[in-house]
Amino acid sequence: MESGSKSINKKLMMSTETTPKHREFHPHILPLSVYIGVGSALFILTGVTVAASFVDIGGVGNLILALLIASIKGSLVALFFMHLLYDNKLYALFFCVSLIMLTAFIVITMFDTMRRDGIYEQRSSPIQISADIYKNMQKHEE
């Protein structure tokens, strides 16, 4: 843990050290083939994810598969289109921290929402008859 944070800090220091010379601005240009390749991969994966949704794997299998494909697509966009693969790794670090925080938020909240059976009889109550929603429905039927 200690050594890990040290090495990150070292990297951060390296990345922001002002180099002795006045720095000219050099754009980092990727070949056209990268964009076309990544773009076609994204198109194909969109087709794959739609096709996969028609196959019933059962349980949460479809959910996991869909999220997996989405994550591959997302990584392609982030790494190539957003240049995370080539840029200063600091940007990738911040982006990853936001994803970790988001995951922690969802998972820790679900520690509560998925384990309430000890207190409540039902996980979530169905709509009560008095709720406005049923009044609207009656209007719709009329």
């Binding site: 520690f111 509560d112 309430r116 207190i119 409540y120």
Partner: peptide
């Protein structure tokens, strides 16, 4: 608040 005992513990 009525959150699960498990998450209170964590």
């Amino acid at each position: 608040s009525g959150q699960s005992e498990f998450s209170s513990m964590v």
